[in-house]
Design a protein around this nucleic acid. Sequence first.
DNA 1: ACCAGTATTAGACCAGTGGTCCAACCATCG
DNA 2: CGATGGTTGGACCACTGGTCTAATACTGGT
Lengths: 216, 216
Amino acid sequence: MPRPRASRLDPERRQTLLAVAAEEFAEHGFDGASYNRILERAGFSKGVAYYYFEGKDDLYAAVLALTLDTLAQRFGAWQRPADADGFWRALRERYFALTTHIVNDERSARLLRSMSQARTHPKLQEAWLRFEGPLVAWFQRVLADGRALGAVRGDVPESLLLTSLMGIGQATDGWLLEQWAHSGVPALQRGAEQVFSLFEDLLVPKPVGPPPAKRR
Amino acid sequence: MPRPRASRLDPERRQTLLAVAAEEFAEHGFDGASYNRILERAGFSKGVAYYYFEGKDDLYAAVLALTLDTLAQRFGAWQRPADADGFWRALRERYFALTTHIVNDERSARLLRSMSQARTHPKLQEAWLRFEGPLVAWFQRVLADGRALGAVRGDVPESLLLTSLMGIGQATDGWLLEQWAHSGVPALQRGAEQVFSLFEDLLVPKPVGPPPAKRR
DNA sequence: ACCAGTATTAGACCAGTGGTCCAACCATCG
DNA sequence: CGATGGTTGGACCACTGGTCTAATACTGGT
């Protein structure tokens, strides 16, 4: 939790600090980033830094909060679609918006990726909980809506679907970047299309019967 | 890469060092682990340590190699099944063996989990490459066999399937542990069953046609 | 038996880490 | 004016992974 007096810090200095910190954290991740270096570059002395922030983890949390706010703002709220088709259209739209965003804003993307370290990092658990909550809640609403519309399977715990979805999403994020790096934008779009089809295969209700007929 | 002379180190002392290191790395992850503490506990001086190992990363790699060797040995080689049914049976068997192993051997499990940090850690890239290769190769063989047998879809790049599979596997690993912690062994088994069904849904060839009929 | 040369060892030492602490500064208020 | 309390710089701390050196143990050759 940031110190209450953090809000009293001159907005301009605060902005500088957060920008420098974002750069450093994005570049090196949480552990790799040097707090001393951040403070030096931002022109902060130790005393000031620890006066306004509790420490490295607190600053990291502040940076993350900023990034996530921007992201959330960009995507707007989730509204329950009218039917299953609408559900998939809405989801697809978000996913593609997200991939474009990740490709276009490298710093935010790296920062977001560093969050995966945060989940297991002992010093970041508090920070993680602050962000996991809203994020998970968002996904849960989406999944619940999907179920209500018959667009998402109900034969498996929602928490499992959620976990799997985020796992795939994170793993394929790296894969997409590779596609992009190797073969450019068209490959990225094709790749995103294929990733999304995996999401569908995972979430769509399964036919009741025995194993599907073989093709080929 | 471990120093060549590492093999000349007294096997007993080596064993002690690796055991202590495994404990420390499993407990705290790579960054969190203290090299100094490991050396102290194992009764090694700095001089000896750096004489036989290149550094923290090298020691970590050695520990990881040991763990993965044990794991590989335990599971034996993958042999191409006769048909699609055999493929799924073989895969299912491995997966359940893995989950039991992870539940029973906490230290190895934690160590394996720490590998996900290794993938992106700058100091561990060399170590990562040494282990990523064989692991990915194993999965690739499995997937290729599955395709040849018509048990695995061919409409999406193999690399994407591989990435997604490992992503889900990793994400659901944590989920399974939660199930186990909350509701005991039966829940774990049920959970593993469900996770595996997700694997199937992801990998199985998809029917050509339009969206599946709604249930409920 | 002796010595040269190499393998091995302990630990002082180094720059850098995140974090603590305190003396000084400065503004406001009585 | 003095007192109070919010600010500030930076010395300092224990610890990090890593380097280096000087001493010791061990070797083979003469």
